[in-house]
Design a protein around this nucleic acid. Structure first.
Length: 426
RNA sequence: GGAGAGGUGGGAGAGUGGCUUAAUCCACCAGUUUGCUAAACUGGCGUACUCGAUUAGGGUACCGGGGGUUCGAAUCCCCCCCUCUCCGCCA
């Protein structure tokens, strides 16, 4: 969420930039400012009365100590009216605080000035196009057919064990999946990211910290017996490492990478988009997270983008990078680049990564700050994250694009991970 | 699952109703001293909100969380959460 001082000082800029996100609600902003003024005057009054109360209590203590019982009882009488007043004030202050907060969480993050206007996906701006779209031979198959043909993934078996959207990888399919995960992690480590293997379930506080609660509750699997949530992304446990943390400026940037399975209920998603690996309830993903100094976060974003890009290039997949327009930008993001790979048999672009700068929108809620030498107060850090990469759609594109009549060719970078001589699935 | 112990600043740790403005030690920062380092000494050392002028300097809250008793709570009472130890179970 945005900070109140920022809203107070930048009302016009915020309103103007939020229009890019198709968010027009000046009343909300003005209400926040008005409520905050009210809150502050309540706080001043409350603090004054508290100070008076403290003074009187101290006086009573002193009087009792020196044996002046009567005087003490007299002062005691004075406290009753103040006490009553204080009770009301404190209640109102609490109400005021929660009202401001309630409104504050409804304000989306302010997009970066470079974000193009637009309503939907169609208005996203293509930044780069790379790789060659393969000309598949006649009779080429979509990945779910290939998965069956080579016994790589069994979707029906997953239905039996768990339900739709929980594929079972086996044999070479399982091996290829593991190879991709290992290679991604190794590439990320080489790029300076520390590898994290976090818990796959998180408590309420963590889910709140990253904003997945209360709004996106329906997206997560809830383990009711212990009140834990299955993670929809590694972003939650990894980012929460730094909840309520004050870093030193020299610790920045923090760079973490994590492989985790991800669990998403995807309530309401049906139809042909969910075919095969296109949309599943459990999938593997390797995530990268950076915590950076506000003055360097956009540099970090570019660095993450080129890092993810070279992963796709090394795999040999045709891809495009788009900058999301205001309408397609998420509630929490200031600037997002999406990566899509081309799945040749489906003749479709599939989103495989989304790299974003959240600026201080997440860290404000997380209370993730850093101490700048010479600064009196800690400052909010910036957070960025992205997938590097989401496995199922990469797998889908690999299978489809690299199919030949003889079998599926495994990209060279994965050879060391596939076992000796294992360069083709046949 | 059963039994017990506990949760206090960055860390250790004292504090059972008002000389607490949370002692003390360690760590850290600045300074003094000093061939250098170290030691010693002096001072500083939390977070949030708020008043003030983005100063100086104040005020308030915070001792796991939430209630309660009281003029006054880290301290007493109630509820909840968490951690540790032992036993049981277990890859």
């Amino acid at each position: 969420m945005l900070t109140i001082p920022y809203i107070r000082d930048n009302r016009e800029t915020i309103l103007k930039r939020l229009e890019i996100k198709n968010f027009r609600n000046p009343e909300l902003i003005d209400q926040i400012i008005a409520l905050d003024n009210e809150r502050r005057s309540l706080q001043v009054k409350t603090n004054e009365q508290q100070a008076e109360m403290n003074r009187l209590s101290k006086e009573i203590g002193m009087l009792f100590k020196s044996g002046e019982q009567e005087k003490a009882n007299q002062v005691k009488k004075q406290t009753t009216s103040i006490k009553q007043e204080l009770e009301t004030l404190e209640q109102n202050l609490q109400i005021s605080n929660s009202k401001v907060n309630e409104l504050l969480v409804q304000v989306p993050n302010v997009p970066h000035p470079s974000v193009p206007a637009g309503k939907s996906e169609a208005d996203n701006k293509e930044i780069r196009l790379g790789g060659d779209i393969p000309q598949l031979a006649a009779g080429s198959l979509p990945h779910w057919e290939l998965a069956k043909k080579y016994n790589l993934i069994d979707f029906e078996l997953g239905v039996k064990i768990t339900g739709a959207g929980f594929p079972v990888y086996r044999g070479q399919g399982a091996r290829l999946q593991r190879a991709l995960i290992a290679w991604f992690l190794d590439e990320n480590t080489r790029a300076g990211y520390e590898e994290i293997l976090p818990p796959l379930m998180v408590n309420e506080a963590s889910a709140f910290g990253t904003g997945n609660l209360p709004d996106k509750e329906g997206q997560m699997y809830h383990v009711t017996g212990d009140n834990l949530y299955m993670i929809p992304t590694a972003e939650i446990p990894v980012t929460n490492i730094y909840r309520d943390v004050i870093l030193n400026a020299e610790d920045l940037p923090v760079k973490n990478t994590a492989y985790t399975p991800c669990f998403r209920r995807e309530a309401g998603s049906y139809g042909k988009d969910v075919r095969g690996l296109n949309r599943v309830h459990q999938f593997d993903k390797v995530e990268i997270v950076q915590i950076e100094h506000p003055t360097r976060s956009y540099q970090a974003l570019e660095e993450m983008v080129s890092h993810v890009e070279q992963l796709i290039v090394k795999l040999g997949l045709p891809y495009r990078i788009v900058e999301l327009c205001g309408g397609d930008l998420s509630f929490t993001s200031a600037l997002t680049y999406d990566f899509e790979v081309y799945s040749a048999a489906q003749e479709k672009w599939l989103e495989v990564s989304s790299v974003s700068n959240f600026e201080s929108f997440q860290t404000n809620r997380l209370k993730l700050r850093f101490r700048e030498p010479g600064e009196k107060r800690p400052l909010l850090a910036h957070t960025l994250n992205g997938s590097s990469l989401a496995l199922p759609r990469i797998m889908a594109a690999l299978l489809e694009n690299f199919q030949t009549p003889e079998g599926i060719i495994i990209p060279e970078v994965l050879h060391p991970y596939m076992g000796p001589g294992n360069t083709m699935i046949s």
